[in-house]
Design a protein around this nucleic acid. Structure first.
Lengths: 259, 259
DNA sequence: AGCTATTCGAGTACGATGTACGCAAGAGAG
DNA sequence: CTCTCTTGCGTACATCGTACTCGAATAGCT
């Protein structure tokens, strides 16, 4: 297992039951993954080093390589383990808006539980749990006569929104861990004076207007998230051929700032 | 300058003209940034180490710290330098669809020239060039009576799409650099067999259908990008109050797969 | 011109990382 | 027991960002 793996981690499943001679494994892939996630949750992904994981398991760093080919593969396992927390019914309910909304909120919640996850810029994870979520979301858009290409595109719009929204909400925390300053500190000390200077310069009217009149950044995170999600879901409603039933009651999303 | 900086890089501008005693600087922030970008373009962001940058400039690693507080700050400078390549008119044309499309395509092109840029998961860059692009895009959505919160949300939809689309197109290259395998190799050797196995398992019908019937991944990148972009821009058109003029001629985006 | 204050250039060094290598310890099969 | 295979893990190496330090260079003042 410690060889330079040339195939995806998903093609090298753990041999949980092995017959024949040789010492029995004292650890497991799931155990290592869980430990790594616990460390990353607490102290950030960078803290989940092979040494630290080994230490918390009561062993050395190199022992882990009997179970995981490379650290990158371990991160793949971690991402898919997070996806396993996303609770979904076996099949979509038939109300696509509710189904996609469920996926969005569940994904967001999982992102909050594991802040390190949104700081990753990775190729799509092909683990079983990630595939399960993907298939559920796409199924919700099935049956409207759309081409599969259209469905994947619309689904990507939701996924992209959730990704970037959670990243905006959380991306800080990792940054805060690096620099040791919390959000208010960042705002007031780090960029605050600069933002004021930018606004005062008058060179960027729309940016300034957003700083002055924008209410979104002062809203509770849940409200902010729902606000943008409604826009995306309405966009999908408009793209679906003749299904006005599942569109939101309002003509547009609720505007927190008042219109 | 080599102290632990506690304020944003944008608040510590380079003192290009300095009076008084002391040796004159032999390098410049722009020079260092340009060199770092050149290295990152050629060999990936990880290759742009302080040592390597110094070496290419004919100096040591530590000399750079006279100009840049930390490597993270240098990356901020690099990102904003990339944004400076995005060519835009001074003000929007009045055709919001054309304006946002221009920003999208220019951003994508810049992403292709600097593949390392899309692999970053960072807080928004507040450099002058990034602000310029941001202001242009928001201005294009101004004048429709929308609240600033709505404008930023719609603009984010475009930015999110471009980000993730370019990431999908390019994210590979960084991965390829790490593992040493190119795209076809990755497809056939790394995940190909696994994908076949997943499809054969029958557990993920929508994923399988996308593999079998999906045409998007076989389209030229430009077509694929435009396909998704049309969806996003149409979504914005639907969200704009009563401005059917700038909507796309077709009812929906062109479906490459034929419908 | 010479002195002084100040700034830049860069070598050395430290703690950290991922992980290749090699061997000892353990466990079923004969 | 002996053989064979697997796991556990200590050691070692290359590489990273960067703190510390001091000599070299330069402008203004006497």
């Amino acid at each position: 297992m410690s060889d330079t793996s040339n195939v995806s981690i998903w093609m090298r499943p753990e041999q949980v039951q092995r017959a024949g001679p040789g010492r029995r494994p004292g650890y497991s892939r799931a155990q290592i993954t869980a430990t790594a996630i616990r460390i990353a949750d607490a102290d950030g992904l960078d803290a989940a080093t092979m040494r630290r994981i080994g230490q918390e398991l009561g062993t050395g760093a190199m022992s882990l390589y009997r179970y995981v080919p490379k650290r990158d593969d371990l991160i793949d396992l971690m991402v898919d383990a997070v996806a396993s927390e996303i609770e979904l019914p076996d099949r979509p309910s038939g109300d696509w808006r509710a189904d996609l909304s469920l996926v969005a909120h569940q994904t967001r919640a999982a992102g909050f539980r594991h802040p390190w996850q949104v700081t990753l810029a990775r190729r799509p994870t092909l683990g079983p749990n990630s595939l399960r979520v993907y298939d559920f979301a796409l199924s919700a858009l099935d049956g409207f006569g759309l081409h599969i290409d259209a469905m994947t595109t619309l689904n990507s719009m939701v996924a992209n929104y959730v990704d970037s929204a959670v990243r905006d909400e959380i991306g800080w925390l990792e940054h805060a861990r690096h620099t040791g300053m919390d959000r208010s500190q960042w705002m007031t000390e780090y960029v605050g004076p600069y933002v004021n200077q930018v606004v005062a310069s008058g060179k960027y009217p729309m940016f300034s207007r957003n700083i002055r009149e924008g209410t979104l950044s002062h809203q509770p995170p849940d409200v902010r998230f729902q606000y943008g999600l409604d826009y995306v879901l309405n966009a999908i409603a408009d793209a679906l051929p003749g299904q006005p039933i599942h569109r939101a009651p309002d003509a547009g999303p609720t505007t927190p700032g008042g219109c």
